[in-house]
Simulated assay, not measured.
Amino acid sequence: MSPSASLHRPPHKLGDVVEVRCEDDGMWYEAVVEHETADGRFMVRFDKDGYEYHYPLTAWRVPKVRHSIVDLKEGEVLKGRVTDVTSMGCYVDIGADEEGFVHISQIRDGVDRASDEVRSGQDVTVRVLSSSSGSLKLSMKPARGENLVAFQDLQDGTLLHATITQILPSGALATVQLPQGGTPCPGYIAKANMGRFVVRVEDVLSLGQEVCVKVVSTKNDRLSLALNDSLDLSYFAGLGNDTWIDAKVEHVAPFGVFLEVPCPSKAEAVTGLLPVSEMADFFVADPNDLVSVGDELLVRVIGTEEGKLVVSAKPIEIEADLTPFRAVAGRDQFLSGSVQAVSSYGAYVMVQPPSGGIACRGFVMTS
């Protein structure tokens, strides 16, 4: 084991407790000064993985002060390192005499598995929730309403500078600076707000990267952000929900389908989400039963809120009189109709009632 490069240091005494770092793993270990050699160097001893190590002291630091959890104040923000991840949350060492626990609900809103958000050895910023009864409870979420008032009036497309502070499987955390300066505020950039379909956030963003963002919302006391290129949805916002547009399946997920939707105001297509509940006017258990990557669909815009393009493949709901059709239901009687829209899993048809009257829209499945 070879220690890292030597640092300037004052003389040590035998028995002094210091922390030493080794290049092997970059970790710091608590060590005891054993003796001084003839050439003025100090030898230290420390334990690692059940073994006792002895080698010259070069890179060192004074052991970090361990705070008593009773001295910590509610709301205090501290740096720490994740030491263990469980199904219920994670343990974090913040330099106190006890490790703190971050419950899964305090990692971030909407987290199903703690292991998807944090890992052992990860450096995190936490906030003290409580430190009573020998238990230290922490949160990785910003304080409710923290610094958000100033951002509420910036949902007009104002560009802001942000720094990526943490990469998560579902998105990225960033600190955002107001145009007039002041205390930076933590915000969250979801995958869906990165301008295109993203499989790995690491392929788009990196830790410490400076980016331009826009405010999506400040709902639920959380600052939601989007990368600059992901909010140009003005074209789609102006479309009526009865305008059908062509789209191509880019990715299929259990909760819906990501589509590549052409946008005349942009050189590249925009990623839209077709929720599973909007795929058809009947229950869809698995989107893969209806579509595959590369399929072309006809969809209509039903929402552009919070910088997300949401579409539907369902027919427009109208109050239709189905009484004339009930009389022929289940019979081998064919009706005249005209195809209105076609998809890979069927077609929408305007059908004339047997006895005449107002036509209604129906769906014919390929199977």
Rank of each mutant, 00 (worst) to 15 (best):
S206E: 10
A190K: 07
F197H: 13
S217V: 09
N228T: 08
G182R: 07
V213S: 03
V201T: 12
S234M: 02
D221G: 02
C212K: 14
V199H: 03
D203S: 15
V201L: 05
A192H: 05
N228S: 15
K219D: 10
D203Q: 10
L225D: 00
F236G: 04
V199Q: 05
F236H: 04
E202T: 13
L205D: 05
S230E: 04
G181M: 04
R200I: 00
G208V: 04
D203K: 09
R222W: 02
P186T: 15
G240I: 09
L225V: 14
A226N: 13
K191M: 08
V198D: 02
A190I: 01
L225N: 02
D232H: 12
C185W: 02
E202V: 03
F197R: 07
E210L: 11
D203R: 11
P184N: 07
V213N: 08
G181C: 12
V215T: 09
S217E: 06
N228K: 14
D203A: 13
V216K: 03
S234L: 04
T218K: 00
C212N: 13
G238F: 09
P186W: 10
T183D: 08
L239S: 02
D221A: 15
V215K: 00
D229Y: 05
G208A: 12
L205S: 07
N193S: 14
T218W: 05
A226E: 08
S206N: 11
M194W: 01
R222L: 11
V216N: 08
A226C: 15
L223W: 04
C212Q: 15
V204G: 00
C185A: 15
L223R: 07
K219I: 10
G240M: 00
G182F: 08
G181Y: 08
N228A: 15
V201H: 02
F236Q: 03
V198N: 05
S234I: 01
S206K: 13
V215Q: 01
S217T: 15
E210N: 14
G187Q: 03
V216I: 11
F236R: 00
R200Y: 06
N228V: 10
F236P: 00
N220Q: 10
L227H: 06
Y188K: 03
D232I: 10
V201K: 00
G208K: 05
R196A: 11
K214A: 10
R200V: 01
I189F: 01
G238I: 04
V216P: 00
